[in-house]
Structures are given as C-alpha cells and as structure tokens.
Design a binder for these strands. Structure first.
Lengths: 334, 334
DNA sequence: TTGTAGGCGTTATCAG
DNA sequence: CTGATAACGCCTACAA
C-alpha cells in the first residue's frame, strides 16, 4: 500500500503539502496540487484511515447498539441508520445489546474502546437512572432511542408507546369488545411496560377489566405459547391485544389450532406494523411505528451534536393505527 | 483518557515494560508486573485500539457484506457471524452490499479502507469471474459465501442450491403434482438461477413442463404480484414453487384473495425455512438452509486463515425439506 | 529483566 | 504557498 511518503517523493513535495491537497486545507498552488493528484492516482494511494484517526481523534464511525438482529423492526432501524450515516460519510458499527441492561452496557463499552465518535443506543432494559450517569461520564456522546433522560432531552429519541397502546385498545373497545386479553412483552422491558400500562389504563377508563395478561419475549413462539396458556385458562375473550406483530402471529396460529376463527370469534391487534402484516391471513391490524423516521432523527441529531451545533429536543414520535382484517366486531355481544 | 505514558510514570517503568505486561510478551518480574497492573486500574487505563492497530497492522475487525438487513435469513447470518467473531475477540463490521455487483464491490472497498483484517462477502450478484481477480488482488483475505471460485475453494462457503431446489420440486412431483408453476428470484441472482435450474431440471426428468415462471425480488410484495400475474395468465396449476418463504407468503395471500385454497387447490412450497413458517396458516413447507452453520464456518475459516494455519475446502452445505401444511396432494388429478 | 529509540501513516503548528 | 518537525499512542527490535 502506497503511503503519503511515496506520494511526496513522486510529486517532489513535502508530506505537509500532500496532506493539504488531500484535505483541501490551506492554499496550494494549482500546479503543485495537480502534481500531487497525479502522483496519488498513479500510485493508487488511499489514505490510511487508522493513522488519520489517530492523528485527528476522529474515526468517522458511529456505534449503534440494538436489542437484536432479528425482526423487521430492527432491520429497518439498522438499515436506515446505516444509510443515513453513510450519507454523511460515517461508517456504522452495529452491536447486539443482548437481553439485559448489563449486556447493553457491555456493548457500549466495546464501542467506546473501538473509538467510535458517538454511540446510538436503542435500549430495552436501561432505566433512565442508569442512563444518566452513563451519558455524563462517557468520553463520547451517547444518544438514546426509547428512553427519556432528564437533562438530556435533546439526546433522546422516543416513541409514545403509551399513547399508541391506548389508541389500539380504544379501537378494540370502540369495536364493541368488552372482554379483552393481552399478550405483553418482557416484564422488564421499558417499551413493554408502557404498552401494557396503556392497555390497562384504557380499559380502566371504560370501567373494563382485562381477561388475562400473559408475557412473551417478542418472538413468535412466545405469542403462540402465551395464547395457548390463555386458552387453557378458560377465560373467555373476544379480542386480544398483543405487544408486537410476531407474537400476534403466534397467537393467531394458536387460536387457529384451537378451532377459533379470527376475527369472527376473536379479534387480534398487533403492534409494530411488520411488513408481513398485510399478507397474513387474516391480514393483521397493527400500530405503525415510524422506525425509519426515528432512526434517521437519531443519526441526524448525532451528527449535529458532533458538529458542535446546538440541538434541541425532538418531539415524541407517535404511531398510527393500521386497520386490517384481524379486528372486527364481536359476533355475539358478551 | 489515560495513555500508556501515564501508566509508565505511575508505575515507574518504561513504555516497553507496560506494553509487555499488556500483551504477555517477554519476561517481566512479577513485582513490576503487579505494579503495572495496579497503575493501570487506578488510572482506568484502556489501550487505544487505533494506535495499536496502526502499530501492529491488525485491527481485530472482520468485515461482513450482506445483501440486505431485512429478513430472517440475513438476521441469522449477521447474528451468528457477529457472535462467532466476538467469541474470538474480533469485532464485526457489517455493510450492505446492495443489489448489484458494483455495490457489492463498493462495500468491499469501503471495508478495505477501514482496514479490516479480512472480509466475508455474502454475494448475490458477483460471478466467479469477477470474484477471482478480486480475491487475488485485495490486500486482505476475502472469504465468499454463496459462490464457488476456482483455485480458492477453501475460501468459499456454499450451499447446494441446485440440489435443494430439486428436492423441493421432486417432493411436489412425488405428491402427484403435474402442473407446477414457479416464482423465482431476481434473474441475475446466483442463488436464484441455481434454484430455478433445479426446478426446471427436476421437471424435465419427469417429462413435465412448467406452468409459468415469474420473477420476484425476494420480498413478500413481489411474490404477491407475481402470483397475481400467474393467476391472470389463465394457466392452471396445482402447485407453486417459490424461491423463498417471503414470496411464498405473498403468493399465498394472492391465492387467498382469488378464492383459491391452499393446499386443497394449490400447494405452495417455500424456500429458506423462515421462522414464521410454522405459524402461518397454512403452515409453510420449505427447505431449511443451515445458515447458522454456514455463517459460523465462514467466520472460523476466516480466523484460521488469519492465524496462518493451512485450511482445506469445506464441503457443500445441503438443505433439508421441511414438510408442513402448505403442500398436499392435488384434489383432482389433472 | 528492563529501557532506549525508531517506526506505523497522518495531521497540525510553526517558521520561512 | 511550502517545508520541517512534533505530536497521536502503541509496538518492537536492539541494547544494556
């Protein structure tokens, strides 16, 4: 690999000059600049990013911590973040944050050691209390998706999970459902708790009680099992609210195997608006989260921060109800 | 951030010594080593990976190029590769190879500039002829998933797409289907061509002709549209072979909307064994690809290569048929 | 067993 | 406009 020194010699100038034309910094006579350019491409010279990073203390790399590589939700997050940062000349280093607050922190530290310029954390498990000191002490800026931290509002990108869950539940109630069960996410997940709370509060508003709450882990299989448990409990219900589309799919399968028709006998409401939703049979009603917009906002906010521009807090993102076949009115009023 | 110099001073030794205890290289008296360790953690010292990489010419980073962030297939690939390399102390830098040979090469070059130690390319579009010179000229080893390159067999991880497609088709034929249509992948995709060829050859072996071949892009929507086109063509068929599970889902939805029952009137065979398969209604028959094993093999082979150990070619991976509800015998023999 | 000094490839600060 | 020269933080002969 040709280095800057090789270019120097061939062009008959000093390293400083080569560096100048390389970075368009300072004045260089056109003729010498041309000589340098010429030397560069006869040698096929590419600047060594490591050396450059060492000298400038900037790697042009952003770190992203996700909770999983699985699922349309994170795929979209990763793709958008990757594209957005690539568009700004930054690489994206993606790490799995695993299933606990500890592993999320581990991923962050690993990114810090890799000298990324900033870290975007999609957190599922870190409470604001843990996050705050981290944001204060970390040698690089930390931008958080999915959790609001006092005093760092402009570094937090959040979705109004609670309101969205309310919307979905209200919709079921508006459809005249009175017996609604729920398959929620992990009990220690931030999102999941908010969605569950929205569900509960909406029911309470209408003086309704739930017909059972079961917890899954966001994977399809867990929705399937949870629904089986629900069915075995003997509780009767005409609608089911699930904390994501995958679990909804599992639940629908369990209902199908139990000979229960969706939506005729039981309506099912998903969450996340998985791209598979419209193609399922029945197609799945869900809540659309603007994942793309959020990912993009996160990266752009990060870039601004890095540029030293002053940034302001971003408004809570909100979802919208996507009505499809899986939700209908109950056949017989209960 | 504390540097090696700070550690020197606090421990009262030279940089060389600190470096030695840091890397367990050379002999160091226990007492001084202890002093160094002590200094290191009172300072919270972390070696600067950039400086180290610059000095050693080794970044402990592997590059992975995938064709998309979407879908269970690539999620699994990314996760497994990430975990396997992390287990060996290497970071994984993931890049999107996009939808053309050119963009795949772009991704590779970007990784080269990032000074990764080796690159694993999952290729969809690069023919062996393009790959070979690349493998010869690249300054870092290139390991390829999904394409065999003469003379570099030990750097290629392949799945027997052709045989798997044959198996799937044979299965449909064995189930007494005689009128089989196909929704294939992109025409310029390596995988896709092999799958399609397997399909055609299997039919030919049984003196059958296909009932239409349509091309999708591996996304659900395209399967849906392709199936609609197929239906509009007026061709009658009792079975449908699709090049992946997503498109199978789309096709099933299209059939459903046309009032055609799966599998009673039309059987559908998928490919990839997407984790959603067992939960669909009807559950989806498919071909399981050992993605995890392949990803692991790719990373391990890469690590061996990096260690300078001699490696030998890896046998073709093969799939296995997963029989579920979506395939049955045709109701009325045609 | 330990220290010195040079090098990895850039950038950046001075003079000139 | 251009050229020395000192960082950046670490590794590694070579000496001692």
């Amino acid at each position: 690999m040709a280095t800057i020194n090789d270019v120097c010699k061939l062009a008959g100038v000093s390293k400083a000059t080569v560096s100048r034309v390389l970075n368009n910094t300072g004045q260089v006579k056109k003729s010498t600049a041309d000589a340098v350019y010429h030397a560069m491409d006869t040698l096929g010279y590419k600047p060594n990013s490591l050396a450059r990073a060492l000298a400038t203390n900037c790697t042009n790399t952003l770190g992203l911590v996700v909770s999983a590589f699985e699922g349309a939700y994170f795929s979209c997050l990763m793709r958008t973040a990757s594209e957005t940062s690539a568009g700004a000349g930054k690489q994206l280093l993606i790490m799995d944050g695993g299933h606990s607050a500890e592993s999320e922190e581990l991923a962050i530290n690993s990114l810090v050691e890799r000298k990324v310029d900033a870290i975007i954390l999609y957190t599922r498990k870190m409470p604001a209390a843990t996050l705050k000191p981290l944001m204060e002490k970390l040698p690089v800026p930390l931008i958080v998706i999915n959790q609001m931290v006092d005093g760092f509002e402009e570094r937090c990108i959040c979705f109004d999970q609670y309101k969205a869950a309310c919307q979905a539940t209200e919709f079921l109630i508006a459809k005249a459902h009175r017996n609604i069960a729920c398959i929620s996410g992990p009990e220690d997940s931030v999102n999941s708790s908010l969605r569950l709370q929205g569900f509960k509060d909406s029911l309470a508003t209408h003086q309704l009680d739930h017909c059972g709450i079961y917890h899954g882990d966001y994977y399809t299989e867990s929705g399937y099992r949870a629904c089986q448990a629900l069915l075995n409990s003997g509780q009767s219900f005409s609608a089911l609210f699930t904390a994501n589309d995958n679990m909804a799919m599992g639940a629908i399968r369990a209902l199908h195997e139990a000979g229960i028709k969706v939506p005729e006998e039981v309506s099912v409401m998903g969450f996340d608006n998985d791209p598979a939703g419209p193609f399922l049979i029945p197609s799945l009603s869900s809540v659309m989260l603007p994942v793309e917009a959020m990912a993009q906002a996160a990266v752009e906010q990060t870039l601004l921060l890095l540029k030293g521009e002053k940034i302001s807090a971003i408004a809570l993102f909100s979802g919208s109800l996507i009505v499809r076949e899986s939700v209908d009115q109950p056949q017989k009023p209960s």
